[in-house]
Design a protein around this nucleic acid. Structure first.
Lengths: 349, 349
DNA sequence: CTGAAAGCGCTTACAG
DNA sequence: CTGAAAGCGCTTACAG
């Protein structure tokens, strides 16, 4: 199995110029589609380009023109379907706009995030889309990104001690999503509704709780403090916390869960205690992960269209490139409720 | 909310050189860690680097040195968790080796694949990892990639009319995986085992069928041609084909499914016909998608460690960069069987 | 140990 | 309409 030995030396503008007896400048103009070039000359050049199998060296062009044709995309965890879909959407929109995506994966570690950002910036992206690792700090991020590269922060709030908004932001409408879920449960007739899971100090938990509390207040219902139950946002921890729901009497008949992972854990916990989720206890999730539609019972949840968010993030950063000096924007993406069997009416007493 | 206006003009080597009264050459040597530089000079330069907030322009360096610090990673569909995990693994290993990942997503379209490859190549990656879109053609791919950029083809065979192996290949051990699944079912006591799903002309179907047939042969069992059932590799089509399993009498008591999607569809089809998968019919999948562990019954399947494959692909392409002239390699990654409830013993008659 | 000079592959005023 | 020349930000022999 012989390997075709690559011919070294790639073909450059100079080779083409020489090959059809024009200057490099003329070849460059042809390449960039300038109307100045005589059509006969253009044809000759284009033929030679094809004949020699020329491939454009965009890095060299970018250096000379002081432009960039890449955007950095840094996510916490590509293995998480939410971020994978987000990346797919962003890449799609960036590619369509002629940019290539420089990928970075932080694995939720602020240290790796610093390393990734530092490395990315050296490659000179026109902008960076960042979904910050948990616990990252705005100052450190900005130190790595520098003042020259526009930054769009997605999904999580990045602590901004400085106070001036030095980056664009894209978040989903956590508050509204939780409100929708809560109103849905109330509409089914529930009166004692808990908010289950998540740590209070997370910005998204705080936003979702706010939506829940608002809906309860608007319905004229008092919230028992014991109905606000914390847990790590994982299936296992949520299952462990199930008991806390039934510490009070009367106990809640329904729960708005922080996210789908928590909701799936709660389902498990309920089942272990002999309760039947979707029959004698109602619950909702947040995210609409793939599993939500196939678990038993299927999970009512708030869908956030991660692919659409990815596209949106690309649009926002590209827009920023065109208007470097306008005020930074804080964009909130809509969410919608997907009703499935897990949100049942209250069991008749 | 005023936006901090970015100071234009980034700081360059020349700024640093001027700032501490040395030549650009010396600054460059410091940057690249040359031992030639006097330690006092080095310290001065490093201080100035920090003071001015210098960021290395890797593109310029790459141009001058005729090197590259990026690798293209082109996958069919980032939204598919398998490829997302693969990308995460590849990116992790590439980042560790000092490369940045140029992402490309083809959405399973050979046309987009050509566009993506053409664009990527202009950014001068040191190599490309490609999971080909279904129906892509080796000649076209190679025309876009060119002879200068090493190519690693992952997951699917790329038709190679030429016959000389012009790219490295990484595949998972489809044959062995299907053999493991088949042997497992035989070990449980099944004698009439079908191979269910997938199109015969797909290379991975062909490989998996070979493993199944080998295990049957080794067990001294004849395979009824009616046990080889084709279907599109989707859940819906698989569900529709369920009837074909029971066209013969006696019917199979178990099926090795082409992949998890097919297996999940078959479960659905069985249930619709009043059969209980995992109780009166045994089946296995392939891939170990997230759903496999949570469906009812949980699915026995062949796990392929996509993240590990991603890392491996990175290692292979980096290895190729170091040895451009050695023969191309055909690497087969191991798989393992994950036993769950869907593979039950045959129902006693 | 340090600097002057040439050059990576492009683009862009500026002449003509 | 086309070419000569300068330059993007680096690196690397080559002198000294």
């Amino acid at each position: 199995m012989p390997r075709t030995t690559p011919q070294h030396r790639k073909v450059t503008l100079a080779d083409i110029a020489q090959g059809c007896d024009v200057s490099r400048a003329t070849v460059s103009l042809v390449l960039r589609g300038s109307p100045l070039v005589n059509s006969a000359t253009r044809a000759r050049v284009e033929a030679e380009l094809k004949r020699q199998g020329y491939v454009y060296n965009r890095a060299a062009a970018n250096l000379r023109r002081r432009t960039s044709s890449s955007i950095g995309l840094v996510v916490n965890d590509l293995g998480n379907p939410f971020f994978a879909e987000f990346a797919a959407g962003a890449d799609e929109a960036l590619a369509r706009a002629g940019y290539v995506t420089l990928l970075g994966n932080t694995g939720e570690s602020p240290e790796r995030q610093q390393a990734v950002l530092t490395s990315l910036v050296e490659h000179g992206p026109a902008g960076i889309i960042l979904s910050p690792a948990e616990g990252s700090d705005g100052e450190r991020v900005l130190a790595a990104v520098g003042m020259h590269t526009p930054l769009l922060v997605f999904n999580r709030e990045l602590p901004d001690d400085d106070g001036t908004h030095r980056w664009d932001t894209l978040e989903m409408d956590n508050e509204h999503g939780a409100r929708l879920a809560t109103e849905h449960l109330l509409g089914l007739g529930h009166r004692r509704v808990a908010f289950f899971g998540g740590h209070r100090d997370s910005s998204s938990v705080e936003q979702r709780r706010r939506g829940y509390l608002g809906a309860m207040r608007d319905a004229g219902l008092a919230v028992d403090p014991g109905w606000l139950i914390e847990s790590a946002p994982t299936r296992l921890e949520a299952a462990r916390q199930t008991g806390a729901l039934f510490a009070r009497d009367p106990a809640p008949t329904a729960a708005v869960c922080y996210n789908d992972a928590v909701a799936l854990g709660l389902m498990l916990g309920l089942t272990r205690r002999g309760r039947r989720p979707g029959e004698d206890f109602a619950l909702t999730g947040f995210d609409d992960v793939a599993e939500a539609s196939v678990c038993v019972p299927p999970l009512t949840t708030v869908a956030v269209d991660p692919r659409g968010l990815g596209r949106r993030s690309a649009e926002l950063i590209l827009q920023r490139l065109g208007n470097p000096d306008t005020d930074t924007a804080y964009t909130i993406a809509p969410v919608r409720l997907v009703v499935r069997e897990s949100s049942c009416p209250p069991a008749s007493p």
